[in-house]
């Protein structure tokens, strides 16, 4: 283990791992709540995109009991770029 005070990439990795754990929790909490599929967020129990309920950003705040979720509307230019389902 690197215990030096200079360019300590071991320490950096430890700090980053802690952040990764925090963000994993945020991603899982947000994904469980978002009951639809959208892009990389793909759920077998909700395979369809649901613009009516889920055209919104998820915001997460850190609390003592884990992430607390709220939502914020997505800016959409309805005139020029109305949202539509992506088909590949």
């Amino acid at each position: 283990m690197d215990k030096s005070h200079r360019f300590n990439t071991d320490l950096l990795a430890a700090i980053e791992t802690a952040h990764l754990l925090d963000f994993s929790e945020v991603i899982v909490a947000g994904a469980l709540e978002r009951k639809e599929s959208r892009g990389a967020h793909a759920r077998t129990d909700f395979p369809k995109r649901d613009d009516e309920n889920w055209l919104k950003h998820t915001l997460a705040k850190k609390t003592d009991v884990g992430p607390s979720l709220s939502y914020k509307p997505v800016y959409v230019d309805w005139e020029r770029y109305p949202p539509q389902e992506r088909k590949y």
Binding site: M1, D2, K3, S4, F7, N8, T9, D10
Partner: peptide, 11 residues
């Protein structure tokens, strides 16, 4: 090497 032998190796 860094993971198994010497964590202080820096690159």
């Amino acid at each position: 090497i860094k993971a198994e032998q010497d964590g202080s190796l820096t690159f």
